[in-house]
Computed example of a mutant assay.
Amino acid sequence: MEIIEKAPAKINLGLDIAGKRIDGFHELSMVMISVDLNDYLTFTELEEDRVIVESSSHKLPLNSKNDVYKAAKMIKERYGIKRGIRIVLEKSIPICAGLGGGSSDAAATLRALNRLWKLNISKKDLIAIGFKIGSDVPYCLEGGCALVSGKGEIVDCLTNSFSLWVVLVKPNFGISTRTIFKEINTETITRVDIAALKKAIISDDYEGMLNNMGNSLEDITIVKRPIINKIKDRMVKCGADIALMTGSGPTVFALCPTEKRADRVVNSMKGFCKEVYKVRML
């Protein structure tokens, strides 16, 4: 049997570091939303008891360092599955870009294997498994627009009716999330009012949403890579309503209310960066 699962990218409309926990993790408060830049994963059962991961990207490890491989192994070991699986990953989401590609691929693997092997794993248990792989995996299991808190394991879906064009610009380098988090100073970091952002989103208040968007990690990443600020400025000058870094970077996204405005931003950025995508919010 063979099934195909879609894994969409995400952007952070808001990312706040609320403090540091006793267990050493940072207390997160984020609003994420899915966009229609997708990886696709094809799952084929094998008679032999092994996990095989293949990918269209030569940049990805295909062993236990890969989140897709980790997710498959966890499901097999936890539920005593003796059948094997071949997973072919068609990669479109840039790697180490702040777009949650690896987490979304892992979430897609958990969803697909739950369905393929008829395991009937509850959402709560899937989230618990996903969190062991990465802090963004619980959100990626839900997708859509959501408030994410705690260490990333608490996901509350938000209703909204925004239908916006999103322009993504990925500079030609990656950023290690772990490296950025090591430099967080909770006393001096820029804070984002996530409660106000949530209120604006569920009230369909577009101006309120724009006014309360922000990313606590921008200041840290921009010191290392000033080009991110140049990208932001250029996108706004070209007609975007707002431009913001997503995750720990380096991808910057712009929101545009019309496709015409989005096209103008895309055309301006294509000569500036190679990886430019025009997508919609999901």
Rank of each mutant, 00 (worst) to 15 (best):
M1E: 03
I3R: 09
I3Y: 03
E5Y: 13
A7M: 05
D16G: 00
A18T: 15
G19N: 09
G19K: 02
I22S: 14
G24C: 10
H26C: 06
V31E: 11
M32R: 02
S34C: 10
S34N: 02
L37A: 10
L37Q: 14
N38Q: 09
D39F: 11
L46G: 06
E47R: 15
I52D: 10
V53P: 15
H58Q: 12
H58W: 00
K59E: 15
N63R: 05
A72P: 06
M74D: 01
K76M: 13
E77R: 02
R78S: 14
Y79S: 06
Y79P: 08
I85D: 05
E90K: 05
K91L: 06
K91P: 06
K91V: 08
S92T: 07
I93N: 00
A97R: 02
G100W: 13
G100Y: 08
S103M: 11
S103N: 07
S104F: 08
A108M: 08
A112F: 07
A112S: 04
R115M: 07
K123A: 12
D125G: 00
I127E: 10
F131E: 09
V137W: 01
P138V: 05
P138S: 00
C140A: 13
L141K: 04
S149C: 08
G150Q: 10
S163D: 12
P171W: 08
N172W: 03
G174C: 07
I175V: 15
S176R: 06
R178C: 05
F181N: 04
E183M: 14
I184N: 06
N185K: 13
N185E: 14
T186Q: 12
T186G: 04
I189S: 04
I189A: 03
R191V: 11
D193M: 09
A195G: 08
A196I: 02
I201P: 01
D205R: 01
E207P: 00
E207L: 13
E218V: 04
I220C: 04
T221A: 15
R225V: 03
R225K: 14
I227N: 01
I228K: 04
K230F: 02
D233S: 14
D233E: 14
V236Y: 02
G239W: 05
D241W: 00
I242D: 07
A243L: 00
M245H: 06
G247C: 10
F253H: 11
T258W: 00
T258M: 05
T258G: 02
K260A: 11
D263S: 12
F272I: 14
E275F: 01
E275Y: 02
V279W: 01
R280K: 15
